[in-house]
């Protein structure tokens, strides 16, 4: 073994000098400044009551969340309400994706199915799911089924659309390869179509999840006895900003958690997806 000339050089770590500019453009420094400013401003506005008594201080919100975890509101602690909302979403979301994804795939693979379903789908598509709340209350009352129905309606559209577009946008060269290798229609569908459309389907699931949260909140705000939407509307009726903000924090956390869960599922089920840099 002969030694390499620059071996000693690589061992010495180069350290950038700490200058004002380096500190000012450091990512973590900027993040800290930004968050301090945000919470500082929030606290100041709430403390000085610039918006009247309609804003709670950040610490009050945290305290109130603790209070809600230990005390029951309409028979549920904060966990209970979070679970009530999440359960509705999981039920509606599973039903919708189990129907919409196969339907979307079928529409993309078979032109006759497409010709029958697409016109009706296009008719329904521009209607925001929230607009269905009133009719679902007329049909199902104010219980669980009406909320699940809204979520199904809301999540159906992005699930179907992404499955459909996912298959349609598969690169035609991939089909050629399978055909050249002697594959039949079955191979084309199972070896090319589905794996290639998988990332698009999962993107659709992520979109539907955020739609589902919007839907469940809207439904709970209109009429419910449990759920995080109920917590914030109750907070509004009782004139307790801390309760409203606590509910909003809980919603954000729950929404974040469910989307992480789907992301995790995607990583497990479809490791061949190319990551796109971005937000």
């Amino acid at each position: 073994m002969t030694s390499i000339a620059n071996e000693t050089q690589s061992a010495k770590k180069e350290r950038a000098p700490i200058t004002v500019k380096a500190v000012l453009t450091n990512k973590w420094f900027l993040y800290a400044v930004s968050l301090t400013f945000f919470f500082g401003l929030w606290d100041y506005v709430a403390y000085k009551k610039i918006l009247g008594s309609s804003l709670a201080r950040p610490l009050e919100v945290v305290n109130y969340m603790g209070y809600m975890i230990n005390h029951r509101l309409a028979g549920n602690s904060l966990w209970g309400h979070a679970w009530a909302s999440t359960r509705r979403i999981l039920i509606g979301f599973s039903i919708a994706s189990l129907i919409a994804v196969p339907l979307g795939l079928m529409m993309a693979l078979n032109k006759y199915v497409n010709a029958i379903v697409k016109p009706i789908f296009d008719l329904m598509k521009p209607m925001p799911p929230i607009a269905w709340i009133s009719i679902s209350i007329l049909w199902f009352g104010i219980g669980e089924p009406s909320k699940v129905f809204i979520i199904i309606i809301g999540t159906f559209v992005p699930c179907l659309l992404n499955a459909y577009n996912g298959v349609r946008l598969v690169e035609p060269e991939l089909y050629d390869v399978v055909r050249v290798l002697g594959g039949n229609r079955r191979d084309e569908i199972f070896q090319v179509c589905f794996p290639a459309a998988f990332p698009a389907i999962f993107a659709g699931l992520q979109i539907s999840l955020s739609v589902a949260w919007t839907c469940v909140l809207a439904a709970e705000l209109v009429s419910a006895r449990s759920g995080l939407g109920y917590v914030i509307i109750k907070g509004m009726n009782l004139g307790r900003p801390a309760m409203v903000l606590g509910g909003m924090v809980a919603i954000a956390l729950a929404a974040l958690m469910t989307s992480q869960l789907v992301g995790l599922l995607e990583k497990v089920l479809c490791p061949w997806k190319r990551e796109i840099e971005g937000l």
Binding site: K27, F29, S54, T214, M236, P241, I251, A252
Partner: peptide, 24 residues
């Protein structure tokens, strides 16, 4: 660096959840 943390804090909250606060 300055805008992203605040944006990421606000992003997961569905806009509908702001309704009670905006009514206040």
């Amino acid at each position: 660096g300055l805008a992203r943390p605040i944006f990421e804090l606000i992003r997961p909250i569905p806009p509908i959840a702001w309704i009670p606060l905006t009514i206040f």
